[in-house]
């Protein structure tokens, strides 16, 4: 009989420290790819060697702007999800996956404009 071993959010995030991750924001179709340096109790994030990736739709074509921005602090409330960046991501698969995630979640948060402080 297999015993189920839960992986809880915080231990999971901690296990990603030192690895390449992709952080998706709730707004602006923006992602940050970089090395996860640290997290805190709010799940604020610190990334190093970061690339900012902004997806834009122009005449139905999705374009992608990438820019190196080095070391950053991301405030917790902006984060939609964090996932490990697989060595060489297959673009098509990832784009569909992420856009679905933002569509559903983006609306929800966009309407309420919720900010907790």
């Amino acid at each position: 009989m297999s015993t189920f071993q839960p992986i809880n959010p915080k231990p999971f995030l901690k296990s990603l420290i030192g690895k390449q991750v992709i952080v998706r924001l709730k707004w602006n179709k923006t992602e940050y790819r970089g090395t996860l340096i640290s997290i805190d109790n709010y799940m604020n994030l610190q990334l190093d060697q970061t690339y900012e990736i902004i997806y834009e739709v122009e005449d139905g074509n999705e374009t992608k702007k990438e820019e190196s921005i080095g070391e950053i602090f991301i405030r917790c409330n902006n984060v939609l999800f964090v996932r490990e960046a697989k060595s060489e991501p297959q673009e098509t698969e990832i784009e569909t996956e992420t856009s679905v995630a933002t569509e559903s979640n983006g609306n929800e948060n966009g309407n309420k404009e919720m900010e907790t402080d």
């Binding site: 921005i69 950053i72 602090f73 991301i74 405030r75 902006n78 900010e115 402080d117």
Partner: peptide
């Protein structure tokens, strides 16, 4: 005000 901050970079 902190609630409008998205990211901070040196």
């Amino acid at each position: 005000r902190g609630d409008s901050v998205i990211l901070i970079s040196p």
